[in-house]
Design a protein around this nucleic acid. Sequence first.
DNA 1: ACCTGAACACCGTTCAAGT
DNA 2: ACCTGAACACCGTTCAAGT
Lengths: 225, 225
Amino acid sequence: MNTTTRRGRPRKGDARLSREAILTAALEVVDADGAAAVSMRTVAQRLGVDAKSLYHHIDGKEALLDAVAGHVLGGIDLPELTGQPEDDLRAIAQSFRKATRAHPQAAALVLTRQLPSIAALAPVEAVLSVLRKAGASPEEAVHLLRSLLAVVVGSLLREAGAGPAFGVTDEAGIAHRRAELERTGLPAVVESAPYLARCDHEAEFSFAVELAVAATMQRLATPRR
Amino acid sequence: MNTTTRRGRPRKGDARLSREAILTAALEVVDADGAAAVSMRTVAQRLGVDAKSLYHHIDGKEALLDAVAGHVLGGIDLPELTGQPEDDLRAIAQSFRKATRAHPQAAALVLTRQLPSIAALAPVEAVLSVLRKAGASPEEAVHLLRSLLAVVVGSLLREAGAGPAFGVTDEAGIAHRRAELERTGLPAVVESAPYLARCDHEAEFSFAVELAVAATMQRLATPRR
DNA sequence: ACCTGAACACCGTTCAAGT
DNA sequence: ACCTGAACACCGTTCAAGT
């Protein structure tokens, strides 16, 4: 036991409060107890500080959550591009997934907040440049980018447990869910119930990305107008 | 001015409080002031009732929001199927969009909540049956369904102003956004800035759906394994 | 059966002080 | 320049009453 813990007036000579420290503390709260557990008070407590002190460094709770989301998104580790458009698009999508999987409890935050566009610029530049090299016009590249982003966001949102989902990953739950689906009596649902009841998120993500990449390449191969 | 307004003890002989009435009131609050404005107190006030009374009909705030989301999702008006798989998939996607556009402020709620799978069963049955008729196996139909759902959810989430977005719809904002994008100096971003700065949500939705439907049909035309 | 008063343990945020 | 005490106007929710 050393001198780092104190009661009462905390951290006299310790590191000062800073935007960076607040952000880190907030992310710790998210990772530990989920995004719903973030409050000015819980974050401040983790720093041994009064909640009101945070306002000297951050613009309020909404701004704090935006900053956390931006921070996670900024953690994307983009792949080196190979020049093979299909491989590169796949790899960028996977790096996006990796960034959100690093903080599962923060995923919904990242996918759901209106982010300051700047935060996501690096991956956007990467996708656009791959599409341009593959023959897309600057305009078409934007449409394709948005389609790809929709697939990625929609898939990761399902994985984060937000958004409409049907499948479940634990063996116990699958059987129950399957029985539930079969009881609906809807013919196509019943037929697909065994597959609808389970969900391998990684496989589904890859499937969806694969489909989107194939569609993209197919479209670029077809001369337009 | 008639006798419907009262102060103090409200609605003596009026319609009784009910789950249905609470749900409607909550949706009114969402439509009027956004999902963030929903509280047990604001909803109760709209019914001329104490907040605590709601607990006799609903399981708490989270359950209330789930119910509102389910209610909006339940308002989907599915198209009659034509037997043309591509047309049918497109039409189902558009009916999904229509349901969320009917309550724009509730869209994020619908797209973001872990819904009781039952709520979305009708559209799921529709999509699965179209895919089966188009030649998909029960298993492949599920993967394709999930991919399509991801595209739809991701696109609508962008439209709802949640999730990462770049474009803007008002002429005033577009110029500003464009300048901002050009200042980044990222070559592909700069090249596409004029298109990146604006976003026609309906067109982007249709584009993404079109791409996904094309990919789906292409895949079903290719014999698997 | 349904509604509420009193009460509790929380929130985010402002502002005038304190060092 | 940075932090906090006092204070305000909110939250969701429980429980013991009241009708």
